[in-house]
């Protein structure tokens, strides 16, 4: 006797049909839910990719930007100390203006700008 036959004998014909019907319904529901789950998963993958790209951008951009500023600042520091040593007011003024000009321009504002652009779907990035 087959398994289905056993079920049929045990539960009756109606019961066997009911099982099959419920099984089909269940599989349909499961399929639909699996699709939704895939969608959630795809969204997560996209989020991870976006986060990694942001990280790569920040790591690529800022060290170079700060290195450039560091170099310029060092030149002004040298002028500053020379000015103090020579009591040269013009030189001192130039050095201090240069230092303040660079330091007061906060490069981290670029990060904000980048984020704004990044979140704008119409923006294009050329890497």
């Amino acid at each position: 006797m087959t398994t289905v036959g056993s079920f049929a004998a045990f539960f009756g014909k109606q019961g066997a049909f009911k099982i099959i019907e419920e099984a089909v319904d269940y599989l349909k529901t499961r399929e639909a839910e699996a699709t939704k789950r895939e969608y959630i998963r795809a969204k997560r993958d996209a989020l991870v990719t976006a986060l990694n790209h942001e990280r790569d951008f920040v790591f690529a951009y800022f060290p170079a930007r700060f290195a450039e500023r560091r170099e310029s600042l060092q030149q002004f520091y040298d002028v500053l100390h020379a000015a103090v040593e020579n009591s040269n007011s013009d030189q001192l003024q130039v050095a201090l203006e240069g230092i303040l000009g660079i330091i007061k321009d906060n490069p981290l504002k670029d990060l904000r700008e980048f984020r704004r652009e990044w979140e704008d779907p119409n923006s294009e990035f050329i890497l």
């Binding site: 986060l51 990694n52 990280r55 920040v58 800022f62 060290p63 990060l111």
Partner: peptide
């Protein structure tokens, strides 16, 4: 964490 770390690196430079 990776992205935050990158941002913190920039902050550290600053």
């Amino acid at each position: 964490m990776g992205r935050h770390k990158a941002e913190l690196s920039a902050l550290l430079e600053r």
